[in-house]
Amino acid sequence: MTTTTLLRRLLLLGANPADALLTGRLPFSTSSRRTPHRFRRSRRNPNPKPPSPEAVSAAIATLPSRLTPPLLTYSLSSVSDARLLLPVLTHSLRLPTFRPDPGPFLVSIKRLAAADLYADFDRACALAFSLLPSLPSPGPLLRSALYFYCQFRRLGKAFHVYTLMRASADPAARPSADTYHALFTALLSRGGGDTMVHYMYMDTVSALFRQMLEEGVAPDTRALNVLVKGYAQSLHLNDALRVFHQMWPVYGCDPDALTYSYLVHGLSAQGRTRNAREVFDEMRGKGLVPTEPACNAFVSALAMAGEAGEAERVMWDMVRTGRVVDAVTRRAVVEELWRSGSRDDADRMVREMEEKGIVGSAERRALLRSLHDEFGDDDLDVDGRGRSTK
Rank of each mutant, 00 (worst) to 15 (best):
Y149M: 06
K157T: 07
F129M: 11
D120L: 04
S137P: 00
A128N: 02
G139A: 15
G156K: 11
D122K: 12
L146I: 06
A114Y: 14
F121W: 14
S144A: 15
Q151M: 13
P140L: 09
Y149C: 09
P133H: 03
L135D: 01
Q151E: 15
K157R: 13
S130W: 05
K157Y: 12
F121T: 00
A145S: 12
Y149E: 07
L127C: 04
A115I: 06
L146N: 09
Y149V: 03
A124S: 14
P138C: 04
A126I: 10
A126V: 10
D120Q: 13
A119S: 15
L141A: 00
A119C: 12
L127S: 04
Y149N: 09
G156W: 13
L131I: 01
L155D: 08
S144H: 15
F148E: 12
D122H: 13
A126P: 05
P140T: 09
P140E: 09
L141D: 00
L117A: 01
L117I: 11
D122M: 06
R143A: 05
S137D: 08
L131C: 04
F152W: 07
A145K: 02
L131R: 05
F129Q: 09
S144F: 07
L131D: 02
A145V: 09
R123A: 14
A115S: 14
L146D: 05
R154N: 15
S134K: 05
G156I: 09
F129C: 08
L117Y: 10
P133E: 03
D116F: 07
S130V: 01
A114K: 15
P133D: 05
L141H: 01
R143C: 03
P140M: 10
A128D: 01
P133A: 04
P133Q: 06
P136S: 10
F148I: 03
Y118W: 14
F148C: 09
Y118D: 08
P133T: 01
A128G: 03
P136M: 04
C150Q: 11
A145D: 05
A119H: 13
D120V: 02
P136N: 06
A115M: 07
Q151G: 15
L141E: 00
R153H: 12
F148M: 07
L135W: 01
D122R: 13
Q151F: 08
L117E: 02
A145W: 01
S134W: 04
S144V: 14
L142W: 02
A124I: 03
C150T: 12
A114Q: 15
S137Q: 04
L146W: 06
L127P: 00
L141F: 02
A119L: 14
L117H: 10
K157G: 11
L127T: 05
Q151P: 07
A114I: 09
S130A: 11
A124Q: 05
L132M: 07
R143Q: 08
G156P: 11
S144Y: 12
S137I: 02
L131T: 01
A126Y: 11
R153I: 06
R143M: 02
F121N: 00
Y147D: 03
F152R: 04
A145N: 03
F148G: 00
R153M: 07
